[in-house]
């Protein structure tokens, strides 16, 4: 049952479920797509989140109760629609256990649950992996879906396409860091993230990607049309890379010549539920 509430006099907030699931995410995505397509006068922002969504409106144009009633109608419609999306899969190269992340995490050890090791050491232990290599393999072994974009410009939340008991889980830092390397690949709660800008953060840091995901100058070839790479419903496949590959890719990025690997793909939630591994293979096969 979706729980609705007003956020002040300008927002309708819908929570599909208190806990994260692909069902909740897809329902939120369908509702927000319908709200956007309905082009309701007075609606200024429509935002899908992991298991919830929010619509911002001008109450001088549409009354809050009318807004809520419309969203509820569209929710009914979304229930009957197929959970099918035309989307993309993006390859994100990751240099795990890189020196910049290491330098940063060492600076903030006193804010961490386990100052004796790295963030990856800690996450490996609490998730029952024998070695960091095993955790890293699990992290890039299965694709992730972008379940929300926000916090700061272009920052994605990612949710991995594995059974719930296999989801990597880790608490956030005891006290947030005041610094995180740009393009740091990180994990907090049941979610992955890629920090789009340098700054504060609380997720466990695993590595960095050379792939730009937010470019306000719009000079990177894959960000010419949209300064933000990800949108909810996109998929990500991490690819582990070593220092030499990272340096080569970073040089290409610097020269604005880096070619991001992005494939078009259709994804059906029903199909995924019926055949998880087959659907994942199809997703991965869509990468160029």
């Amino acid at each position: 049952m979706t729980r609705y509430a007003f956020g002040g006099d300008e927002h309708v907030y819908g929570e599909l479920a208190p806990e994260m699931s692909l069902d909740a995410f897809f329902k939120g995505l369908s509702i927000t797509n319908l709200v956007r397509e309905a082009k309701i006068k007075g609606v200024t922002e429509v935002c899908a989140a992991n298991a919830s969504f929010q619509v911002r409106f001008d109450p001088d144009v549409i009354k809050p109760d009318d807004m809520l009633a419309l969203v509820k109608e569209l929710e009914e419609e979304a229930e009957h629609g197929p959970q099918l999306i035309e989307t993309r899969i993006v390859e994100v190269p990751v240099f795990y256990e890189d020196p910049w992340t290491y330098e940063t995490l060492m600076r903030f050890r006193e804010r961490h649950q386990d100052p004796s090791g790295t963030d990856l050491d800690y996450t490996r232990k609490i998730n029952g992996y024998a070695t960091n290599a095993e955790l890293i393999a699990a992290h890039h072994g299965t694709p992730w879906i972008i379940s929300m974009v926000g916090f700061v410009a272009g920052l994605p939340w990612l949710y991995q396409l594995v059974e719930r008991e296999k989801q990597i889980q880790s608490p956030k830092y005891l006290r947030p860091r005041t610094d995180t390397p740009k393009l740091c690949v990180a994990h907090g709660g049941a979610f992955g993230s890629i920090y789009s800008v340098r700054g504060a953060g609380g997720y466990q840091m695993f590595g960095v990607t050379p792939l730009p995901i937010y470019d306000p100058s719009q000079t990177q070839p894959h960000l010419k049309e949209n300064m933000v790479l990800f949108k909810p419903g996109d998929f990500v496949r991490y690819r582990p890379i070593d220092r030499a590959t990272y340096d080569a890719m970073a040089a290409e990025v610097e020269a604005c010549r880096f070619e991001a690997r992005i494939g078009k793909v259709r994804f059906s939630l029903d199909e995924y539920k019926a055949d998880r591994l087959g659907t994942i293979r199809k997703l991965e096969g869509a990468l160029p």
Binding site: M20, A49, N50, S52, Q54, F151, G189, A190
Partner: peptide, 14 residues
């Protein structure tokens, strides 16, 4: 699931 252990945590939303 997914919210975090602090009582003030929610599954990240808008």
């Amino acid at each position: 699931f997914g919210a975090g252990s602090d009582p003030s945590n929610i599954v990240d939303g808008c």
